[in-house]
Design a protein around this nucleic acid. Structure first.
Length: 698
DNA sequence: TTGTTAATAT
DNA sequence: GATATTAACA
């Protein structure tokens, strides 16, 4: 309804509002009433008079639309003016003007608070009556704008009608007063047109953390290192206008919670694995271990497609042992930084986080990422398929593969790795070896689940951090940073259940003992958008015994490296956040994908005869099932026969799928895992859960 | 002032 | 419930 229409209605038949406005005048004093009548008529109002309040009320009730406004004396014998005011307000919601010779402020206040739209003091002047129409207009306008409020008012009136006047009075008074205030505001707006809001009350525009913005945020955080990432610095690094320190602080808060959640998920996963059985007593000890090379990356649920496999190895280990470590990344259009690190120098590593940045050119990513990886993948897959056999029972699982289910709500199907791999907009993470890292002894020394002989007790620490930012829609879900750090547990002779016999060499160059080694795949019940796993290289391992305790590696590592986090009130230490930092820091600023292939090559070379660990850790779902190496090897060999390109371009299918299905043959497994498009590129299954693989060793 | 956390708003 | 803003506190 337009204002014109409102005024037409207000004007009644003639449409010349306020001319002809229908006014009911109530006053017990005939003289005053007569005078009032005359004045109102002088204003060309349509006037009805009565000397009795009850009569007035009756008239109003008979036809609620008969009058536009009521003018009532306060003091009347049959009914108090305020009572009439109240009832009118409740029942008709007509504007009521109080009239009284008493100009006492309290009385005026009472009238207004009880809902009177005006309070006139006798003798009333025509000038005052000339503008009373505005109350009608205002009331009508208000009704149109806020029918609900009016409705409420009416409702209150109805309900309170029978109750004590005092109760109703207060209630009504408030309502009416509020209305009055609103009316005044409206009036102001009308008068001032577009009034400038008070800067003090003006709300800040809501900051939407777009992907780009978040990307800058994460970049800044990475650059600073999570430890030093404080709102102000982040803001400075982001160099974005329009956001305040508070905004950043808020986002940082959320980001931290996110990381924490991830970490807790990891812990949960570990715990579940341990609790699910399949782990013998010795394996249970793994919790006490510093953690063995298995680690996984987690990503927030969101839309991170991940595709990419890379392997890395610790530099120290590589140099000496050439033992390869593999990392599986499933991150398309996301940035992932992975770098092995040594536990001992976490602080330094963290400081270097900022240096980590994805550095792979899209063109090369495909090849480089997958180069040399196939074997490991194969192992994983094979093991998964063969999961029915319990390798752990046999006693040795040097290598652990960890895969986490995808948390991603949206998984982006990848047409091909090359296409899916980081584009200019995406920040793929890549594993890089850190040549500078040196192994320091002691890591393996105390490991229960894992025994390595000839390791020299060198600490082995690997870490991966992945940060994935997808370009797809939701920013919050795009936090795909995952971090995993794994430390190789020190070897604990007591925990050794067997010796690795290096009888067989896996296609990827890994040697495994049929009886003692197996792949173990760990899948997390939790969805991880991206998971990456790293296999810890076991350089000089002559004997390796593995217990199915790799799952706990991450946790143990965290504990080992949590000194810094411990400083925080929040428990970051237990989570992967810490790891994340470490990993990031470890990643060489300029690492290139080429390293992956190189690493892989090394891996092949190193593994020969030296490493057996091949456990694929299939997370919670089936912790115990293990695949025997022999079978794995066989499968792996078959896989190897396939073109290398296929492997490189291939992507893993969700682990979940794999888990649920047992494969009788390699082909089945492969089919299940990989779908290809016409170009021969692998297609990522929408429910792809195979986000990460971690290789415990070799 | 700044950072962190919790409460509150959207 | 997820996010963002704001308040409160160290």
């Amino acid at each position: 309804m337009t204002m014109v229409e409102v005024r037409r209605n207000l004007g009644g038949e003639n449409g010349n509002f306020p001319l002809g406005m229908r006014v009911l005048a109530v006053d017990d004093d005939p003289t005053c009433l007569k005078l009032l009548d005359g004045l109102l008529r002088k204003c060309q109002y349509q006037v009805t008079t009565t000397s009795q309040a009850k009569t007035a009320l009756k008239m109003l009730r008979e036809n609620k639309n008969r009058f536009d406004l009521v003018i009532s004396d306060v003091h009347m014998p049959d009914m108090d003016g305020f009572k009439l005011l109240e009832l009118v307000g409740l029942e008709m919601d007509l504007p009521v003007i109080m009239l009284s010779a008493n100009s006492d402020t309290k009385l005026v206040m009472k009238g207004i608070t009880h809902g009177a739209c005006d309070y006139l003091v006798k003798p009333v002047r025509v000038e005052e009556l000339r503008n009373i129409w505005q109350h009608v207009l205002r009331r009508k306008k208000f009704d149109l704008i806020s029918p609900t409020t009016d409705e409420t008012c009416q409702g209150n009136g109805q309900s309170g009608k029978e109750s004590e006047p005092t109760d109703n009075e207060d209630k009504n008074g408030k309502v009416n007063r509020k209305r009055k205030e609103e009316e005044e505001e409206e009036e102001e707006d009308e008068e001032n047109g577009e009034e400038i809001e008070d800067p003090a009350t003006q709300k800040k525009p809501r900051v939407v953390w777009s992907i780009e913005l978040h990307g800058k945020f994460v970049a800044a955080v990475n650059q600073l290192g999570i430890e030093k990432a404080v709102p102000k610095r982040i803001l400075d690094l982001m160099n974005v206008e329009g956001i305040s320190r508070e905004n950043v602080a808020s986002h940082l808060q959320k980001y931290r919670l996110y990381l924490k959640r991830i970490s807790s998920m990891t812990s949960l996963q570990e715990n579940m694995v341990g609790a699910l059985g399949g782990w013998n007593s010795s394996s249970m000890r793994m919790n006490s271990l510093d953690g063995f090379g298995g680690f996984q990356t987690l990503s927030a649920r969101g839309t991170l497609p991940i595709s990419g496999l890379s392997s890395y190895q610790t530099s120290g280990m590589l140099g000496r042992l050439n033992s390869p470590s593999g990392i599986g990344l499933r991150n398309l259009s996301s940035s992932v930084l992975i770098q092995p690190s040594h536990t001992q120098d976490l602080s330094n590593s963290i400081a270097n986080i900022g240096k980590l940045q994805p550095v792979v050119s899209p063109a090369n990513q495909n090849a480089s990422l997958f180069h040399g990886i196939p074997a490991q993948l194969e192992l994983n897959q094979l093991q998964q398929s063969k999961r029915t056999s319990d390798i752990f029972d046999s006693g040795c699982d040097p290598t652990i593969f960890t895969s986490a289910n995808s948390l991603l709500d949206n998984i982006v199907p990848v047409g091909s790795l090359s296409s899916s791999l980081p584009s200019a907009s995406s920040n793929p993470l890549f594993l890089q070896e850190n040549p500078q890292q040196t192994l320091s002894g002691g890591v393996f020394g105390n490991q229960n689940s894992f025994k390595v002989t000839s390791l020299n007790s060198e600490p082995f620490n690997t870490g991966i951090s992945c940060s994935n930012f997808l370009s797809n829609g939701r920013c919050n879900e795009n936090w795909q940073s995952t971090i995993q750090v794994s430390k190789f547990p020190s070897n604990n002779p007591s925990s050794l259940s067997g010796t690795f016999s290096h009888d067989r060499l896996l296609p990827n160059g890994m040697r495994t003992n049929n009886s003692s080694s197996g792949l173990r795949i760990q899948s997390s019940p939790l969805d991880f958008s991206s998971t990456s796993t790293i296999s810890a290289p076991l350089g000089d391992l002559r004997e390796i015994r593995c217990q199915a305790g790799f799952v706990g590696d991450v946790q143990s590592v965290n504990q080992a490296t949590n000194e810094k986090w411990g400083e925080h009130k929040t428990d970051y230490t237990q989570n992967s956040n810490h790891n994340f930092n470490t990993l990031n820091s470890m990643v060489p600023p300029n690492g290139d994908v080429g390293q992956l292939s190189r690493i892989l090559d090394q891996h092949n070379g190193v593994c020969n005869g030296k490493i057996d660990p091949s456990l694929v850790n299939q997370s919670n779902r089936s912790p115990s099932p293990l695949v025997q190496l022999s079978e794995i090897e066989k499968s792996a060999t078959e896989l190897k026969t396939r073109s290398n390109e296929d492997y490189q371009s291939g992507q893993m299918k969700s682990q979940g799928d794999l888990v649920h299905n047992s494969y009788d043959s390699l082909d089945d497994l492969m089919n299940e895992m990989i779908s290809r498009d016409q170009d021969g590129t692998m297609l990522m299954d929408g429910e792809f859960g195979f986000d990460a693989y971690s290789f415990g060793s070799c």
